[in-house]
């Protein structure tokens, strides 16, 4: 498997995301310009210029006409995805950590970190079809207990939100009232990433407790645990097979003190049901911060602390080998 090595960022990657059809790939990093790539051959199509801080997260609309980014510069921005033009800016008083559009894209959920005096919070905005109607005032917002909100998803036909937190906790919220419905400790350390399964019945969480876990959306019951022995920064579920992939590695601040191999920077494939590892893909020379599966499950992308995005198309072996 020869990956495309995409060099568009000089700083650590924070999130990579495919659009629904899987022809485009957006990468966000701690430098100021998110990039848009062709998911087929890794050509860079363009960048989105305007942010003034690290971009933590992004989301893409159903029709791939808008890109939403959340940044440490305390703004959430809406971009025209094909042209790279900035359309709208929602200004917070705090850095924005996670964004997610609701199904149907009438609403946008954004989470903000604690900053100076403000506690962390969740904000719900109306997401206007015509950009002229877009407002920067939240339809509803509420504060959450101490700690970072790392990812957010809409569930139960947009009635509820689930959020992952850096205390290893999952929380469920009522969207209309902001009431906390459920709280569950599922990891022993911070949850760094959470990704939804294609059928939206379960999520995979990646944690600094060196495991990734498969968790039922409805009950927050931990169904599977994938032990890696190293910090897990990101994990994704294959839409094609019963496979999951996870990335991570030694703490970035420690990397220079050891040999490259010692860091454990490979992307690791586990069988989703048997919880057994069956493959590794190496290449990054820093921890992997984010992984994403192509919507077809035939390729996947990793973004590392080293500033590179690696776009892998699976070899034939991957499809023909019976791993278990």
């Amino acid at each position: 498997m020869r990956p495309y090595l995409l060099k568009g960022h000089e700083r650590p990657l924070t999130q990579v995301k495919y659009n629904r059809e899987g022809d485009l790939l957006v990468s966000c990093a701690k430098n100021l310009q998110p990039c848009l790539w062709s998911a087929e051959d890794g050509r860079r199509i363009g960048t989105y210029e305007g942010h003034n801080g690290a971009i933590w997260t992004c989301d893409i609309t159903w029709d791939s006409d808008r890109l939403i980014t959340g940044s440490a510069d305390q703004t959430v921005r809406i971009w025209d995805l094909p042209t790279g033009k900035e359309l709208f800016q929602i200004r917070h008083r705090e850095p924005c950590r996670a964004v997610k559009l609701s199904a149907g894209e009438r609403f946008l959920a954004a989470t903000s970190d604690a900053f100076i005096e403000s506690p962390p919070a969740i904000h719900i905005y109306k997401f206007a079809e015509n950009i002229e109607d877009q407002t920067a005032t939240a339809a509803i917002e509420w504060t959450v207990p101490k700690g970072r909100v790392t990812r957010v998803f809409w569930t139960d036909c947009n009635r509820k939100l689930i959020t992952s937190h850096d205390g290893g906790i999952l929380r469920r919220w009522d969207v209309e009232t902001g009431a906390l419905l459920q709280e569950q400790q599922v990891h022993e350390d911070a949850i760094q990433d959470m990704q939804m399964s294609p059928d939206e019945t379960h999520v995979i969480t990646a944690s600094l407790d060196k495991t990734a876990r498969l968790i039922d959306v409805d009950t927050f019951e931990v169904m599977k645990t994938y032990k890696t022995g190293r910090f897990v920064q990101s994990a994704a579920i294959s839409p094609l097979f019963d496979h999951v992939v996870m990335g991570g590695g030694q703490d970035a601040s420690q990397v220079t003190t050891t040999a490259a191999q010692a860091g454990g920077f490979e992307a690791r494939f586990f069988h989703k049901i048997f919880q057994e590892e069956f493959g590794r893909v190496r290449g990054h020379f820093g921890p992997i911060n984010t992984v994403a599966f192509h919507p077809s499950g035939k390729s996947f992308t990793t973004g590392g602390e080293d500033g590179y995005v690696r776009l892998h198309h699976m070899d034939m072996d991957y499809f023909t080998t019976k791993f278990f």
């Binding site: 199904a103 149907g104 036909c157 947009n158 059928d199 939206e200 019945t201 379960h202 039922d216 959306v217 409805d218 169904m223 019963d242 989703k272 049901i273």
Partner: peptide, 18 residues
């Protein structure tokens, strides 16, 4: 796992319809 998927089929279908 099969039993789990079966038990959650309704929810998945609901989301899809929605």
């Amino acid at each position: 796992w099969k039993a789990y998927c079966e038990s959650r089929r309704n929810y998945a279908a609901l989301q899809m319809d929605f």
